[in-house]
């Protein structure tokens, strides 16, 4: 299990433990983290799982694919340099302690 910290839109921090191999979205969703809708269940087709990734960890992520890139342009909240779709990021041990900020809105 890998420990992650999601920051909800209210500013509340939620610590969540999730298995390697799951996506960040699934870790948040199963635990009912506020601020992630994930309407398409992780098939990279809704952009309602948009998150901002801890700058310190951004280099440990696989680069994004072209679909994710396109979908991020459709996200409801502002796209920043550290924007990602959480359903496209597979959890790895190196993520231990990563802080993931949810945006103010997903829809």
């Amino acid at each position: 299990m890998v420990n992650l910290i999601f920051v909800e839109p209210s500013g509340a921090e939620r610590e969540v433990a999730a298995p390697e191999g799951w996506s960040l979205m699934e870790a948040a969703f199963q635990n009912g983290v506020d601020g992630i809708e994930a309407e398409c269940g992780g098939s990279c087709t809704c952009a309602t799982c948009h998150v901002y990734i801890d700058e310190k960890f951004i280099d440990r992520l696989e680069p994004m694919g072209s679909n994710e890139d396109e979908m991020l342009d459709c996200a409801a909240a502002e796209r920043r340099d550290n924007s990602r779709l959480s359903c496209q990021i597979e959890i790895k041990v190196e993520f231990e302690g990563m802080v993931i900020q949810t945006p103010d809105t997903q829809i």
Partner: peptide, 15 residues
Amino acid sequence: EARLLQRNAEFYRNN
């Protein structure tokens, strides 16, 4: 099966 769940058991307890 675990990955198939909508929410985990804790979610229903906490809520």
